[in-house]
Simulated scan of single mutants.
Amino acid sequence: MPPFRSMVFFEAFWHGEAIGDGGDLEEALTAFRAVQSEQSDGICWSEACAEPAAQPHLRRYASFEAYLDNADELETIAVTAAMIEAALQELA
């Protein structure tokens, strides 16, 4: 029997602050709905992501346990407006 392998874990960031997380890429991208819910008149993701301070990104960790243990992320993934729009469209 192969050894148990932990799943990766993602943490989502907007304006330098963690806004959510997920056990896979799609789930983590849906965390950006928190930004959308703060806008009363909707949001244009291409404009919002182009704002220099926004810097939407995900940090990928080896596992949830690694995240909890404050391990360094394996990589930082820049998030585009198209990625957010696609993930949020899946929720609709």
Rank of each mutant, 00 (worst) to 15 (best):
A66I: 00
P56R: 00
W45G: 05
G42V: 02
H57L: 13
E51A: 10
P52T: 01
S63V: 00
Y67R: 00
C44E: 14
S63R: 00
P52V: 04
L58N: 06
Y67K: 00
E65A: 14
L68V: 12
A62V: 01
S46L: 15
A54S: 06
P56S: 08
L68A: 14
W45E: 01
L68G: 13
S40W: 14
A66D: 04
S63I: 00
Q55D: 07
R59V: 07
S63N: 08
Y67N: 02
W45S: 01
L68W: 10
R60P: 03
D41E: 13
Q39L: 11
A50S: 14
E65C: 09
R60F: 10
R59S: 04
R59E: 07
G42M: 00
V35I: 07
Y61E: 06
R59A: 08
S46W: 12
Q55S: 08
A66S: 09
A34W: 12
G42P: 02
V35M: 01
G42D: 02
C49S: 06
H57D: 11
V35E: 00
A66Y: 01
Y61L: 06
R33F: 05
R60Y: 08
Y67Q: 06
Q36E: 15
Q36A: 13
R60E: 08
A66P: 01
S40N: 15
Q39Y: 12
L68T: 11
E47T: 08
F64M: 06
E51K: 04
A50E: 13
A48I: 10
E65W: 08
S46M: 14
E38V: 05
P52E: 04
Y67F: 12
V35A: 02
S63G: 04
A48Q: 11
P56V: 05
A53C: 09
L58K: 01
P52Y: 07
A48W: 03
I43V: 07
A53M: 08
A54R: 00
F64P: 05
R33P: 03
D41L: 08
S37L: 15
G42K: 03
R59P: 00
A50V: 07
R33L: 10
A34L: 13
A50C: 11
C49V: 07
S63Q: 01
E65V: 10
E38G: 10
Q39G: 01
A50R: 11
R33M: 02
Q36H: 06
Y67D: 04
Y61S: 03
Y61V: 02
Q55V: 09
H57A: 09
F64A: 05
C44R: 07
D41T: 10
Q39V: 03
R33E: 09
S40Y: 13
A62E: 02
Y61C: 03
E51T: 10
S37T: 14
S37K: 14
D41K: 07
E47V: 09
S46Y: 14
Q39C: 13
Y61F: 07
I43K: 05
L68N: 12
Q36D: 13
Y67E: 05
S46N: 15
C49E: 00
S63H: 06
Y67S: 06
A50Q: 13
A53W: 08
A34R: 11
A34K: 13
Q55H: 03
D41M: 12
A34P: 11
S46T: 15
S40C: 14
C49T: 07
A34G: 13
P56N: 03
Q36P: 06
